[in-house]
């Protein structure tokens, strides 16, 4: 913590799939966050570095990377808070790397879509007034609506790492978010969609998703709540004699 420079080590991958590590020194007085460090490197030291970034205020979800072995948003990770001058930046795990710090998120958004993450209602088209919802009803799902789809939870989840078909924390949390919304009528379709081997049943509650979530969404508790919903749905299906 004594020097004037941070030592960045960045994991690279080029067009041909060759993996290497590059080292850079970044003056401490020029940057505050890890993202600013990366931008400083790209602007001044090495123009070939590729990364994603946009809002720099932790709301767009672009700059998910692994900082010193932990999935984080680069823009909101204050470099001095890392308690070391050595900063190791790698692409987030459990995704294919396209180049350097840029990973392929298509699978993530495909999985997100599988949980039918939108309001389902019978009365489409009549938009002449709002649907009543009290603040208490809102609070039920408020926390789960804060997800920015950054993918950190997927990178942290040990199950996603070993089973690439597992829908993952973000996707399942979105299901709960819509199921808990008092304006929604489509809960049963969603439970059918995710009450599968690759849905809630695959979660073993390691809780790492909640540890790394930058928005305090707590996906792991969401999945447990969802599991109970799935259970009740299955039981009521059995009682009604409906075969799955």
């Amino acid at each position: 913590m004594s020097g004037n420079e941070y030592e960045f080590t960045i994991k690279r991958k080029d067009d041909h799939g060759k993996v290497s590590y590059s080292d850079y020194s970044v003056p401490k007085d020029r940057i505050s966050t890890v993202f600013e460090g990366l931008l400083y490197i790209k602007e001044n030291l090495d123009q070939t570095l590729s990364m994603r970034y946009s809002c720099t205020m932790e709301i767009c979800g672009s700059c998910a990377v692994e900082v010193n072995g932990k999935p984080k948003m680069a823009c909101s990770t204050i470099a001095s808070s890392l308690k070391t001058d050595k900063i190791r930046v790698e692409p987030i795990r459990h995704f294919d790397v396209i180049k350097d710090l840029v990973v392929d998120l298509d699978s993530f958004f495909d999985k997100y879509r599988k949980g039918l993450p939108y309001i389902i209602r019978e009365d489409y088209g009549d938009y002449s007034s709002e649907l009543l919802q009290t603040p208490e009803q809102f609070q039920k799902y408020e926390q789960y609506s804060m997800c920015i789809k950054c993918g950190l939870c997927m990178a942290a989840c040990p199950i996603v790492g070993t089973d690439e078909d597992y829908l993952g924390p973000a996707s399942l949390t979105a299901v709960l978010r819509y199921n808990l919304d008092s304006r929604d009528e489509g809960g049963k379709y969603r439970l059918e969609a995710i009450g599968t081997e690759e849905g809630t049943s695959r979660c073993h509650y390691a809780g790492e998703c909640s540890e790394v979530c930058p928005k305090g969404v707590d996906p792991s508790s969401a999945i447990q709540k969802l599991r109970w919903q799935v259970f009740k749905h299955e039981i009521s299906g059995l009682i009604r004699g409906r075969r799955k």
């Binding site: 040990p158 790492g161 070993t162 690439e164 509650y205 390691a206 809780g207 790492e208 540890e211």
Partner: peptide, 29 residues
């Protein structure tokens, strides 16, 4: 698609992980 796949060993890397992860790994073991 398998390039990123982690091995089961990754379930037992506790460094910088939370209590839930420890509980989970030990539960599996």
């Amino acid at each position: 698609m398998t390039e990123h796949k982690a091995s089961i060993i990754s379930w037992f890397r506790f460094d910088r992980k939370g209590l839930g992860f420890f509980a989970y790994s030990m539960h599996r073991f």
